[in-house]
Design a protein around this nucleic acid. Structure first.
Length: 556
RNA sequence: GCGCCUGUAGCUCAGCUGGAUAGAGCAACGGACUUCUAAUCCGUAGGUCGCAGGUUCGAAUCCUGCCAGGCGUACCA
């Protein structure tokens, strides 16, 4: 990456200044390199480092900038011009040949272009979705799924070793309620007049499951004792629902390395173990018949119950066991992706990590804000309790996987998402997904045309890239070379929306170029140069879409 | 009450570890298909960055207060 070279060169120059000008710096500051908006005026790259040094070096930012510039080693021939600008920016103009050389990089790395070894093979676990198996996934889960999956893909691209995990809450109250709900529907189907309480799960899928069980088991279950029957219904319902969730996720192109069962934590006595451990650390006590953890000692607002008065464990108790298990699996970083409605849970989880003796640096929670659905101007209300939610599978059926993923990923996870079904479904210019995919399809079409006319054969080493001297062409190449930076930034900030924004920009540059110039012409050398560049665009579009889990179609 | 998130163009949102004239998409308006896909392009217009103070050479960005919306504040998950 050109930025790395620049960063190194600047650091060396500052070092020289420390020696030659005896600047009082104990260390080289972090050198931020940005791509200014107006690159014709402000350069291809810019750094505000001189301005950040004013207090330490005790000079005006512009003067500092001049010193750095005059000590800059410019032998590397990538810098065409460097100047001090504005309040003290150092602006770099890069030679066109440097940009064009990036084309060779794109070709040699091809589907790997954009990837790096930044993560150095460190182990990272991403846990996401983890919806209770008490009902089908809804759009909110869909957003978490898309974001978790793309964060995993992105981290993998920059060299982390990634494991994706789904935590199944298959014990506890809500499982009882699930079993009871299907059981009651089952009895109703058999003609028994039983009341269906409000706290039961109301959704139609409960009736569906009851119907299926009735079909398979007949009326044999009604004869069994209620407890035995409900236990059967609990297991079978959870299984069916979980299978449904798995199949929805597959349709959504989300795959997990591990499905972790909460129940297994109890079966393997891991909850017991961790409670004992906390007990030994003397951060557990009894009060009002319940067992509490002194989480307030570790930054939580108050202490939390681990075992309720009725003897049942809280969700928090198994969560402690679960996260202890995660840490025991040698992950360097554990990322949990939660719905923002769980944000109140963060302090107690961090407290728990402190209590177990781990550093908070190993654990990171990403909160995904809720999704509100619209159909044009009509707002669709959603509420899980009443069973009136829009299922992820419905959205997938209506708008397709690509559009759904793109919409979920195109906003920062921290901002509320307005999902317009009408817009996502449209095959028209308003729809950003098709805009990007169309650029890819268009390039494929050009390549097909080139093949048909027999001008497609070239070897990148022999192509005269200096023929790519239009401002539009250099802009496209500059944009292409930015891709690895975007991937890195996205991985570092764990923000997925940077990629759709980048794609939008690159697709725009290409569409605009395509409309203004011809790629295939009578000039064979120029044709090859332009085809090379166009193919570069295709490679990057495809790699970027791959990170989003979205198809790059050959035709549309 | 307390805590977290949000408030930027008509709409949906970037920008938020302070920096160079505040950006994009869509919608609006006006144009472009005999030529590699018009699911495209070109042009125009659009803003007291919620409000009020403060810190600074410099604030959409940091601090304080207020207003508005969302979420959370369980021996629920």
């Amino acid at each position: 990456m050109i930025t790395n070279t620049l960063r190194k060169t600047i650091a060396e120059a500052i070092n020289t200044c420390i020696k030659k000008e005896s600047w009082r710096l104990d260390s080289i500051p972090e050198i931020v390199i940005e791509r200014p908006k107006n690159d014709a005026v402000n350069g291809d790259f810019s750094t505000p480092v001189a301005m950040s040094l004013t207090s330490k070096v005790r000079m005006s930012p512009r003067k500092i900038s001049e010193f750095i510039i005059s000590n800059l080693n410019q032998d590397n021939s990538i810098i065409e011009k460097v100047e001090t600008a504005g309040p003290g920016f150092i602006n770099f103009f890069v030679t066109p040949s440097t940009w064009r050389d990036e084309m060779k990089e794109i070709y040699s790395k091809n589907s790997q272009y954009g990837n790096s070894d930044y993560g150095k093979g460190k182990n990272v676990q991403v846990e996401f979705v983890s919806a209770n198996p008490t009902g089908p996934l809804h759009v909110g889960h869909g957003r978490g799924a898309a974001i978790g999956d793309t964060i995993a893909r992105t981290l993998k691209a920059v060299g982390f070793n990634i494991k994706k995990e789904y935590y199944i809450n298959d014990v506890g109250n809500q499982m009882q309620t699930l079993g009871k709900s299907t059981y009651l529907r089952y009895l109703q189907l058999m003609g028994e007049k039983v009341e269906f309480p409000e706290e039961s799960y109301q959704g139609d899928y409960i009736k569906k499951i009851a119907t299926e069980i009735l079909k398979e088991q007949g009326d044999t279950l009604a004869e069994k004792g209620e407890e035995e029957a409900i236990s059967f219904f609990t297991d079978h319902s959870a299984n069916r629902i979980l299978n449904g969730i798995k199949s929805d996720l597959l349709d959504f192109k989300v795959e997990f390395d591990c499905w972790f069962s909460e129940k297994s934590l109890f079966e393997e006595k891991k909850v017991e173990e961790v409670l004992e451990l906390l007990n030994k650390k003397k951060i557990v006590y009894e009060k009002d018949g319940a067992t509490w953890m002194k989480s307030s000692l570790f930054g939580d607002d108050k202490d939390r119950v681990l075992i309720k008065e009725n003897g049942a464990h809280t969700y928090f108790a198994s969560d402690i066991a679960y996260h202890r298990d995660k840490f025991s699996r040698n992950f360097d970083l554990v990322i949990d992706i939660w719905g923002a409605d769980h944000h109140g849970y963060v302090p107690r989880m961090e407290a728990m990590i402190g209590a177990l003796g781990y550093s908070k640096d190993f654990f990171k929670v990403i909160l995904v804000q809720l999704v509100s659905l619209r159909r044009g101007n009509e707002k669709l209300s959603m509420s899980t309790r009443s069973g009136k939610f829009v299922a992820l599978s419905d959205v997938l059926n209506e708008v397709g996987c690509d559009a759904a993923r793109y919409f979920f990923l195109m906003r920062g996870s921290n901002s509320h998402l307005d999902f317009d079904l009408e817009l996502a479904k449209k095959q028209s210019p308003e729809n950003p997904v098709y805009y990007v995919q169309y650029a890819h399809a268009r390039i494929c079409s050009v390549v097909r045309e080139a093949k048909a006319t027999g001008v497609d054969a070239f070897v990148i080493e022999n192509v005269d890239l200096s023929l790519l001297d239009l401002p539009e062409e250099l802009n496209i190449i500059k944009s292409l070379s930015q891709f690895p930076e975007v991937v890195l930034k996205s991985a570092n900030s764990l923000e997925t929306h940077l990629i759709p924004f980048y794609l939008q920009e690159l697709a725009y540059l290409f569409h605009s170029y395509y409309n203004k110039y011809r790629i295939i012409s009578n000039d064979i050398k120029l044709t090859h140069a332009r085809l090379a560049m166009t193919t570069g665009v295709k490679i990057v579009l495809k790699n970027a879409l791959e990170l989003l889990g979205i198809n790059a179609p050959d035709r549309m």
